[in-house]
Structures are given as C-alpha cells and as structure tokens.
Design a binder for these strands. Structure first.
Length: 487
RNA sequence: GUCCCCAUCGUCUAGUGGUUAGGACUCUGCCCUUUCAAGGCAGCAACACGGGUUCGAAUCCCGUUGGGGAUACCA
C-alpha cells in the first residue's frame, strides 16, 4: 500500500502441519521469500504443531519438501513450536505476575451460554470480564478449592491501529476485541500466545500472512507490547478463490503443491504463477525467473482483492516454461514420470530425442512423457477415425510398402534423406507428399498430429520404422477387407 | 446475527482526476506449415449499481448490492 519497507528483514512462514501445503500457503511463503531475498535478512520456517491431534510429523516433512520444491529458501528452522511450549508458558506467567493477564474461572459451559445469549440479541459476544473483577481473596478461595482456570489477556481499552502493508490503515475499536485466552485450563498456551512469543524471540520484523489472520492482529499487537517486544509490520493477503468465488476447494481439482507436482507442473512455473496471483511487477511482464521477481518485488504492489485460481493459465505458464528449458534441464523433473511410464531404462539418447520432439507440444511434464510413450511400444493403436480416409485408398498399402523398402535401404537414416526419399516417391507416382506423409505419421505414432514427420521417422529409427510400416499396411489391408470394398 | 475486508473484460491484472481503459489466459479468425503444437497478426470482451465532490471521475466520499474473512480454552 504505502508502507516504506527497506531491509534487512526477518520474516517467517508458519504453517500448521495438518495437511499438504495448500497453494494459498505456498503463495504466502513465496511473498515472504521474495521480500527476504529482495531486502536481505532471514526467512524463518516455523511449524505450528501445537495442536497435536491434528498435527502429523509426516506432514511436517511433506511441507518442507513442497516449499523446497517450489523454490523458496529459508535461512533458519524449521523450528517446531511444540518444543517451545515451556517458553510460551513462562512468558504467560510473567504477564500474570505483572497484572497484564488474569485468571478466569468461568467454565466453557458458562461461556457458551453467554455466547448463545449474545447471538440471540444480535450483538457481538465479548467476554464480560467477570473474573477480572474478582478480588484477591476470591481468587485465592477458588484456587484453594482446586478450581481450574484459564489465563486471559487484559486487553487495553483503546483503539488498536496499525498500517497493513497491503490494506493500509486499520483501526479496530476496543468493543470489537475481548480478553482472549493465553493459557488454557490445562495449562497449554493458545495459538495467540505461542505466535507472539515466537515472533518476539525470533525477532520477526515483517509478518505476511493470510487474510484469515487479519482479525487476530489487533489481539497480537497489544500482546507484543505487553511482552515488551517490537511490533512487526503486518501484511494480510487475500485468499485464493475457486471458480465459484469461494475459498479454493478440492471440488475443482488440485489445491496442494503436492498435487501440482504430481500433475507434472514445473516448480518454476508454479512459483511464477502463484507470485502473480495477487502481485504484479507493474509492467506487462509475466514470465519471470525468481531472480527477476526478487528484483521487481515490492509489498506496495500486493493486491488487496482476492484472486480466482485459473488452472488454464497455470497450464499455459507450465507450457511456456517447458518451451524455454532444454530437455537436459527438464530431465531431473521428468524422472518420476518416466519411472511411472516404465521408461526409466529406455535408451537415454533416444529418450532425449523423443522428449525434445514433444517439449513444445505438452503442457505438463506428465503429458510430455505420455506423448513419448508410443515411441517405445512394439505396436500401436491407430486413431480409427483419422484412419478412415486412408482405408479408402486401395493404392496406399502398395505405396507404403515401396517407401518402407526404400527407407530400409537408405544409406543414411537422417531426416534429410528420409524427406528426399519420400518426396521422390511421391513425384514418381504423381501423388502429393501429404498422401504419404499423413499415413506414415499414423503408422509410426498412431496419431493424426504430432512432430514434423521426418524428425519423427529419424528418431524412431530404421528398424522400428520398418516394423511399424509393416503393421500399418497389414492394418489397412485388413480394414479394406472388412469394409468389403469391391475390387 | 455482529464485526472487518474486497469490487476494471469469463479469469489474472495495468491504471492512483483528463487514456481510443493497456497487457496476459481462454475463445474465434487469418498467416506460417506435411499434421499437431509453438510463433506472428487480428477480433470478441470490463470500470457492479445509485448518489454526491469536481470544469472533468474507473480513479475521491457516502450508500446499495454482491463476494470473502472473523466471530473457540483450533491454528
């Protein structure tokens, strides 16, 4: 918005390990990454795993791997928030001793009833500070009875104001906030307590997080102050929406970084795409390397309005990235797809050559491998609809046999020689080159479209080409017989 | 319900009082071409609505509508 930001900064990304890394989270991590790289400082990765029932160690590893895969770089961590619980507890005790927090003996049942009441009256529920008014003696008496208590933060009575990096001036009146809980009655710190203590201890200067935290910020700011910490600069990112303008959900396909990885999206493409979902460099540039984005990045250009996730555009961007990288560069990313397709042991040169032919014809790595698979098959399925026109020409099988024989006899099996051979034959027989070209493509690939024919034949090789032409001629003849075309 | 946020082509966006409202994805057409892609060119398509402020509003203010978020002893 209008926030001047200059480095160095200490930023953090703090996911809770309750599932795969969501693209929304990935985008948050990307903006933190860009800001850190732009201004210097440190990016801290912190895993907020204090909700043990929902947290999973495997997910923690998964999130790290997803972050590393898209290309974000963190300098410190991962720190596990669960390991810092004693520290959070200790700081809460300090607040209690200093009178900045107080014990609350109200039971959840009582509070629920009060909440329901407020709901019925159509007003916002705010903790009525029942226990703040307890005298020292009353507190002692309850403690003596052995009653359990939660610890609540004593919120200040003034408006909470701050300048959000993406939304500008924010102002929350005191009646919108209440004395939230710091320590649960089982003694465990709540999320609010943990984040603020961690952000202070980790000397965080800038917090970029999702909009779902916007209403937490006016709680966190006074807590930072009460704990004697520097209040970081906040920026709240709008959520990523699905085509239905609701929060992006599984309903419309992949939502996690992991899934896009499995679909064969190049990590650089996903990084680029996500970075552009809520930020733009200000000019018309779209395809940018991380380095370029770091150069161009500015929190001032972060958008405040939510963006719809457009799968088509991601696919387009993915294809752009494949077109701009050599097959050799793509190879490491292709590995798992090659294994899945059973091509892990294929001849490397031949594999590279076929992949090269399809690099600009596929939108994902997975598609690229699928397109290349027929080159390694003994026999092919022919696209029957596209074959229909070849079946009608009784001269074609003979022509293809002649071509097959000439190709087999070629001294040099190069695309130049192959093209010369085919064109010579077409001229001799007085047919257009296309009459031969299309059936040959079908014979070798099973498809009506694809790479330039002579590249295709060369890569296919002498032996395989011969075999495929044989099979296709047989297929055509069988087809003619089947349709019972009269002599 | 209450509080908060958001609003330019279908989608991502540029635009910060005066523009023929620009670019990208998608779609359509043409060129290139042995096909499919890629690439090039062209086209379709937007300031949610209503009031102000102003000589002049996509841009500033107020409403309405629509969408989203938050309303926990979850994170």
């Amino acid at each position: 918005m209008t926030t001047e930001t200059h480095g160095p900064v200490r930023v953090r990304f703090a996911p809770s390990p309750t599932g795969f890394l969501h693209v929304g989270g990935a985008r948050t991590a990307i903006y933190n990454d860009l800001l850190r790289q732009k201004l210097g400082g440190a990016f801290i990765l912190r895993i907020e795993d204090t909700d043990k029932e929902r947290s999973d160690e495997a997910m923690t590893r998964q999130i790290q791997s997803a972050l590393a895969w898209i290309g974000t770089v963190w300098d410190e961590g991962p720190f596990l928030q669960s390991e810092r619980l004693p520290r959070h507890h200790e700081r809460a005790e300090e607040l209690l001793a200093a009178g900045k927090a107080y014990r609350c003996f109200c039971t959840p049942e009582e509070l629920d009833a009060q909440r329901a009441e407020a709901q019925k009256k159509g007003t916002a529920f705010r903790y009525p500070r029942t226990c703040l008014r307890l005298s020292q003696e009353e507190v002692e008496a309850r403690l003596a009875e052995g009653r359990t208590f939660a610890v609540r933060f004593r919120m200040p009575d003034d408006n909470i104001r701050f300048k959000d990096m993406v939304r500008g001036d924010m102002d929350f009146p005191p009646d919108a906030l209440d004395d939230f809980i710091l320590l649960r009655s089982d003694g465990n710190p709540t999320y609010h307590m943990s984040v603020v203590v961690d952000d202070i201890d980790m000397r965080i200067t800038h917090v970029i997080r999702g909009e779902d935290h916007l209403s937490n910020t006016p709680k966190h700011i006074p807590l930072f102050q009460a704990l004697g910490g520097e209040v970081p600069t906040f920026g709240h990112l709008p959520l990523i929406l699905g085509p239905d303008k609701k929060r992006l959900s599984k309903r419309y396909g992949a939502t996690s970084v992991e899934e896009f990885r499995n679909e064969g999206i190049l990590p650089q493409a996903l990084y680029n795409f996500l970075a552009l979902l809520g930020w733009s460099p200000g000019d018309d540039r779209e395809i940018m390397t991380r380095e370029e984005m770091i150069q161009l990045f500015s929190v001032d250009r972060l958008n405040a309005s939510p963006a719809v996730f457009d799968r088509e555009k991601l696919l387009w961007m993915s294809s752009q990235y494949m077109a701009r990288h050599s097959t050799a560069e793509l190879m490491p990313h292709l590995q798992t797809f090659l294994e899945q397709a059973g091509l892990a042991d294929a001849d490397p040169d031949r594999l590279a050559a076929t992949l090269e032919l399809h690099r600009t014809r596929a939108r994902t790595l997975k598609e690229m491998v699928e397109q290349v698979l027929p080159y390694f098959r003994e026999s092919l399925e022919y696209d029957a609809a596209a074959c229909a026109k070849f079946l009608k020409d009784p001269a074609l099988p003979g022509l293809l046999e002649t071509l097959r024989d000439r190709y087999a006899a070629l001294p040099e099996f190069t695309k130049e020689a192959l093209e010369a051979g085919l064109r010579a034959l077409s001229e001799e027989r007085g047919v257009k080159a296309g009459v031969l070209i299309h059936p040959v493509r079908m014979a070798l690939s099973g498809a009506a479209g694809g790479p330039p024919l002579f590249d295709l034949v060369e890569v296919m090789g002498r032996e395989a080409s011969r075999r495929h032409l044989d099979r296709f001629v047989a297929y055509l003849r069988a087809g003619n017989a089947a349709t019972g075309s009269p002599g």
